[in-house]
């Protein structure tokens, strides 16, 4: 139950189905980032390692989400296209849109609660 709460907290401001936040320990979580009105929403996303992040382009304009450290890159996402990636590596990953560099965001990947005390 404690773990479920932690996951739910990590999904703050995200439209995550209840079922996704109440999965069994170590089950894959998911989160969504929207490209909306030339901004990443949420701008900062904190997730547990192993979370699948889906990026959705809500705009009529193409965008990219390109990590500064090159650890991930959606390449060109046309209007209403999506892209997904499982974030396993712990760290803070800043990214931006190549086409509109003023669009910036950060994905913070932290240790999965179930892993604490077992490493």
């Amino acid at each position: 139950m404690l773990q479920s709460s932690a996951i739910a907290l990590a999904m703050t401001a995200l439209a995550i189905p209840a079922s996704a936040a109440s999965t069994a320990p170590r089950a894959a979580s998911s989160a969504t980032i929207h490209m909306h009105d030339f901004a990443f929403v949420p701008k900062t996303l904190t997730i547990d390692a192993g979370t699948r992040v889906t990026i959705v382009n809500d705009d009529d304009e193409a965008h990219t989400a390109t990590a500064i450290d090159a650890s991930f890159d959606t390449a060109g996402l046309d209007a209403h296209e999506t892209w997904s990636h499982v974030f396993d590596r712990i760290g803070s990953f800043a990214y931006y849109c190549e086409l509109h560099p003023s669009m910036k965001g950060v994905i913070i990947v932290r240790t999965h609660p179930a892993s604490k005390g077992h490493s």
């Binding site: 990219t64 390449a75 086409l99």
Partner: peptide, 8 residues
Amino acid sequence: PGEHDVIG
């Protein structure tokens, strides 16, 4: 090139 020609 424009920026749309050099994505990635």
